[in-house]
Design a protein around this nucleic acid. Structure first.
Lengths: 344, 344
DNA sequence: GTTCGGCACTTAACCGGTTTAGTCAGCCGG
DNA sequence: CCGGCTGACTAAACCGGTTAAGTGCCGAAC
């Protein structure tokens, strides 16, 4: 028999549909041995619940959505999502939740509405938050629980939303202190786009750490996380007049830092002899470059786990107050691309 | 009113539920002006279909699954999936299909069964096929349409399955011919795992191209696509006795080739003066390395589009016979990491 | 000895759509 | 003037679960 239904099981076990439902869901109302018999029959027949039917009667989709708010060409080089998704799945599959992927740019409001109204998901995870991002408001209006992955927002989210602190500040500060400790006095920053919250927060941390060390912020170039933009920014910084030229550059991600190593090599600038370079992400390649890249290791899989756990709490009805599972912290990994500042 | 149902619309329009359903689905049985009135009312009330309810009555989930058969740590460095997913989505969202992600290793049979039996998806896309992969058989048994992304299999798939030719043979042959044309006579290969079909097919193409050129296959090292394994393989090849040592190495992906550049640099081997290196993927970084990497560019987004298009055809009932949308072909991109063979 | 309570179960409604069978009015032809 | 056909629509069943309300039985309490 193809895909037995609960009625088939009921008939075979000689009880009613309702009794079978009670038995399968461990609810009171059936005796222990009836329950056992029903379970046996169900297993023997190979019964599995139909997600659609269950969703219809419980109005719970048993699925959550992950929204990728990037254009395809940007997604291409991304190392974040595969790992993040892996983390999500470890939690979701344990609870038998499905993960729905939706590629929708930030302003694609209809896509978000569809997601919510078709009742396909019970909650969503947002990443790549922008400054003044409208999506939290929209999701609140649609009454969809959401986990916002990124630094805490200025505007507190609605009750059924929660930010999951991927706070990259401490690690960036650690990076700057490391460089200052090596004697660097002009530490530049190649930033991510200023309208992305994590681009902005890394820049703020860099500036704060320099201030703590009593140093003025070095030059900043705003880039867009791409290798191309990293290379351009590097040329720009190395072209500065000697008194402004940095002896160390903090890049907002590994991709840009890696491109920078190539630029330095090409221009005959020795790393780390004449220039120290740091990245962010600790991509797999970072340890296998020459020189190996000093960077910040983040536990993206751990973020994924934390985000999923928190979202399921929200879906289960906890309000924002519950104890958030700690987002794992990022750590500086010192390798060969940083060294003592050149003596002037 | 929260989420109006079809009954609400019916009441407001002054017709029956059934009539509304006919009108919304463009089926005969309602007059033109009734249809128009119903559509107006539905739009005005902000009605959207409930995916669950529709799935229940049509037994069509309107969703397809993508199975990621890799462990989280392997997924981490992957550049394939984000782009592939982007390609899938462009097609799926146009047809209002959802994309369900399932991380399930190859032998996780229960996960596949759940996917099918819960009726959550109408078809699946499989990647990373192994030699002797059991999953096509399993999916056939579960009667789930499937697109197998990878080179054609030895065993023809079942009627509701189709392979989408990500045939990397021609591009690898082009690569080898390029190297032979530059005078290389000992061309080595650092392969992907032999039990992955695309690892195996790249190796076969490398061997065939050398044979065509009248050359014996150079040394082969089997690696696993990781940077670490690429570095190890490179050391091994460079340690060979001079008469066996390759003057060119074809790597099965960019990640390993990139690690190789670092190894060569570290050992004082000039690329491309003493050693030519090629990759596969054309990752974003490839163009921004020193030397820039000669590699094979694949249109992963295009694959995604093709896979989704083909799968929807299968779901719609076409048998395998239909014309497959052509999988875009891969092309060699020559950059600076390949050059004339050193004169001995 | 009746009444009450509770357990174990059944019946039936419900979720929100689709679909089949049926009703009714109007028009045609004979 | 009546029977049959067609088109437009309604009523109700159905998909596969969950769940509120109802039934029958048994033992305990008064």
């Amino acid at each position: 028999m193809a895909r037995p239904t609960i009625s088939d099981v009921a008939r075979a076990a000689g009880v009613s549909k309702g009794a079978v439902s009670f038995a399968l869901n461990d609810r009171p109302g059936v005796s222990a041995d009836t329950r056992a018999r029903v379970l046996d029959v169900a297993r023997a027949m190979g019964w599995t619940p139909s997600a659609g039917a269950r969703a219809l009667s419980t109005s719970r989709a048993h699925a959550v959505g992950l929204v990728l708010a990037r254009a395809p060409e940007v997604l291409r080089a991304d190392s974040f999502f595969p790992a993040f998704i892996a983390g999500l799945e470890t939690v979701l599959s344990g609870r038998d939740y499905a993960l729905l992927l939706q590629v929708a740019e930030r302003d694609d409001e209809p896509a978000y509405r569809r997601l919510a109204q078709q009742q396909r998901v019970d909650g969503v995870i947002l990443t790549d938050l922008h400054v003044d991002d409208d999506r939290p408001r929209l999701l609140a209006e649609l009454d969809l629980p959401a986990v916002l992955v990124g630094p805490r927002l200025d505007v507190p989210p609605s009750p059924r939303q929660v930010t999951l602190g991927a706070d990259d500040g401490p690690a960036v500060r650690e990076t700057v202190r490391h460089l200052v400790g090596l004697g660097h006095r002009v530490v530049a920053h190649v930033a991510g786009p200023a309208d992305l919250v994590h681009g902005r927060s890394r820049r703020a941390a860099w500036e704060a750490a320099l201030a703590e060390a009593g140093l003025r912020p070095g030059p900043v170039v705003e880039a867009d996380f791409s290798a191309e933009s990293g290379a351009r920014a590097t040329h720009h910084l190395l072209d500065l007049a000697p008194d402004e030229r940095p002896t160390a550059i903090v890049y907002a991600n590994d991709l840009m830092a890696t491109a920078a190593l190539a630029v330095a090599h090409e221009r005959g600038v020795d790393v780390p002899g004449q220039l120290s370079v740091t990245g962010y992400d600790d991509t797999e390649l970072a340890a296998h470059l020459r020189p190996a890249l000093t960077t910040v290791r983040t536990d993206v899989v751990g973020w994924g786990r934390a985000a999923a756990t928190r979202l399921l709490q929200l879906v289960d009805g906890d309000t924002g107050g519950g104890p958030a599972p700690a987002a794992p912290t990022a750590r500086l990994v010192v390798r060969a691309s940083t060294g003592p500042a050149p003596s002037t």
